[in-house]
Structures are given as C-alpha cells and as structure tokens.
Design a protein around this nucleic acid. Sequence first.
RNA 1: GCGACCGUAGCUCAAUAGGUUAGAGCGCCGGUUUGUGGUACCGGAGGUUGCGGGUUCGAGACCCGUCGGUCGCCCCA
Length: 418
Amino acid sequence: MKANRVPKPAPVRGMQDFLGDQANRFDHVVATFRDVARRFGFRPVMVPVVEATSVYQRTLGETTDVVAKEMYTFPDRGGDSLTLRPEFTAGICRAYVSEGWQQFAPLKLITHGPLFRYERPQKGRYRQFHQIDAEVIGAPEPAADVELIAFADLLLKELGISGVTLQLNTLGDAETRDAWRGALVTYFERHRDALSEDSLRRLETNPLRILDSKEAADRALLADAPVIDAYMSAQAGAFFEAVQAGVQASGVAFVRQPQLVRGFDYYRHTAFEFVSDALGAQATVIGGGRYDGLVEQMGGPSTPAVGWAGGIERLMMLSAQPVAPRVDIALVAMGPAAEAAAPALLAELRIAGFAAEQAWRGNMKKRMERAGKSGARYALILGEDEIAGGTVMVKNMQDGSQAAVPRAAIVRRLKEAL
RNA sequence: GCGACCGUAGCUCAAUAGGUUAGAGCGCCGGUUUGUGGUACCGGAGGUUGCGGGUUCGAGACCCGUCGGUCGCCCCA
C-alpha cells in the first residue's frame, strides 16, 4: 500500500546518469586518453568547474552562441556573477595567468570533466557533457600542433574508432583572418538576396560561419566565395605548410577543408576537427586549433598556444564495446565460521593483486549464481568442511572443475592459474 | 528559442476499429536441489497506462492542455 506517492525524480534536462555498460565506456575513454597522453608526455592539470563570468564572456566572443545564450550563469551569495564552464580552454588560460605558470612553459597539459551549455538536448548533445582536453601552452612551433593532432589520432585508434576523418584548415594570423573576413563580408553582402535567413544573421554576428551552413541556398554561393589562401600572409602560409607536412609525416591522414571555421573568436592559424557521420546531426568528435592571443587577452604575457577537446559521450557512442571490468575471484563463504574467516582471505587475495569479491547473502545456490554473473574466473568455496580441513575449494567457472587447495597455498596456486 | 514524433511493470515492448480483471520477455524474489553458477521447469511480487481536463454507456487508445523524452533546426564536443 503506497500511502504517499512521491513523484519519481528525473535528472535535470539534458543531464544523464550512467551505469553499467555506459559507465564502463565512459571510464574506458578516459583511461585510454590518460594512457595515450602519457606516451606523448602530457601531464594532468585540474581547474575549477566554475569561473567568473568574465573569463568566458570576453574570450569566446560576445556574439557566439555559447556566450549569448548557452551559459549557465548565476550570481553567487556574494553577488559575483559566476558561470559553469562551457569549455576548458579559457579556464586553463585563466589559471596559467593566475598561477604564473609561464615559468613552466612550454606546458603540455591534459584534463577532463564536465562542461555545461544550456542547449536543447539531442543525440550527442547534452546540457552537462564531458570532454577530454589537451593543450600545449607556450609553444609557437608548428611541431606542437602536429603533436597534438597525432595524439588525437592515436587516441581514436586506441579506442577502436574508425570512419572518422580529420579536416584541417588554417584561419591565418590576425591580419590574414581580418583580411579574409572582410572579403567574405563584401562577397556575401553582394549576394544578400540569395542568403538564407540564418546566414543573414550570421553576416552580422559571425560571417565565417556562413561557410559551414547547411542551407542549400548558402552552399550554392560558397563555390565562388573568397578562399583564405588568397589573403594568407607569408608567415601564416609557411606555418600552415609546416603543420601539414608534419601531420603527413606522422602518418595521419587528413583532408584540407578550406571552409572549416571554429566556434570561438580566439582561434588563429591551425583549426581542425575529427568528424564522423555516425552521430546524427553532430559531426565533430574532437575539435581544436591554435589560440595564440588568448593568454595575453587574459592579462598574461604574449603566449602562443594550441589545444583540442573531445566529447566523451560522442567518443563513447563510436567506440567498440569495451570489456567489462575483470573479476578474478568470487568468494562463497557458507556458515558462521567461514564468514568469519572470509575477510582475512579476501585481504590476502587483494593484497596479492587479485580482483576478489564476495557474495554477501543468500544460500549457496544464490551465491554461486552471483559468482557466475560477476564473470569471475574462479569461485572460492569456503564452508564448514574446508574450514575443518584447512582448505579452500577452488572452482574453475569456465569448465566447472574444482579441487581442494590448502589454505596456506591458495595465493600461490591462484597466481599460477591466473 | 522553433519544428516533428513519442510517453503502458525496474528495463524492452504488446493490448483487433474505443468494450470485462491491461499482457509478455528480461530482471528481481522463492521453489524443484537444507554445499555448487552459466541450461531447464514451477510459483510469486511488481501498473492511478506521465499529469490534468474533455468526448462517450464505456478511454491505455479519440480531443485539448501540461510536463517529460527522442530526433531535427540554430550552434557545438
């Protein structure tokens, strides 16, 4: 009889709970990321989930959607305006300046965690989502860009993800970008009447974005739109050449995508995205680029930097199913004497490095059932007979065979078997 | 913010064109087996059909509203 019905609680819109396979996949993406990062010599950095609103407002660009309508911004009890981080880079640069990390430059950093954007959720897009993130701060060399791209590429391979293509472009240096942008505006102004409604708005807010419009009307105009190469300064051109050569030499396949632009205002030079067509309307799995002016804009010294971020949920959707966490041993202890002896046996097994679990309740059948479901390789049966004889029954869960092993020899014997 | 589709046990779904007591599989609990899992058989618990209103003799099905979900637009990881 349910007296008072409490409505079933739901997670906040666009936020998810993970258990089982989902949680395993999440964990697997992060663990693989850490492992690959280690091979590239990247080190962890931790930064807050919340920053002063100004950290994002100024740097991402006032007119970008993230700043204009997607930030979780709220006043704290002291009246300061805070924002849940919508991306990693700005916060890391803030920390770099706050903590005087220039003394450690060049820094190769990784981090991961939740990000928040107030958007309408859909496939591969959530209000709380998670990213892995890699940044190189304090390196003007194209080799830094190359290494980051190789890092991302190897990560995808290690995750068993295929069918992803690397699109590479340059936005040039500040002069190049400005000149190109000006040419684009002039060009699209001339074709105002042919532009889609959305692109007319983009023309005012972020003209570069017209380049990746999905509207057929817009796409028809793109063929003759000015290409950045025509406005490229010598240095910017040379830089991009070096990046492309390095990526190629790393054995990473890519396609030049001259219409690739990125969402935030701080990007300069290299811009890239690893894209997939298996994510519904979302294409980008990992995206990044160079942001040479950002640290300085934060009030720090002039500092070149590059980085990328990858969506963990998106990587989870693309990765082959990871193996479930391995359980070596399930202990089935029956009777008061056995249950009293269980902790010591478990402690010994765990200290020896085994993944050992114990069923806490039920009759023998139930406990064996649990042992079977846990996927344990061996079940250790400890009952009155074993206690009396100073042994443990070791059962191979694959073939069902079992044998009594002296209690004192148990760890050694399991080490031989596993 | 806009659009389309969808809300039935814990989960995945069913319920002829409105018609008795809303079913099944999986999972869970118990039994066949008072010390042996993965197979099998038997039994059991578990539902205000998202919520509110309306139409009807009668609504899980139809209508309106609302909340939630999914997918798409915008934008992005």
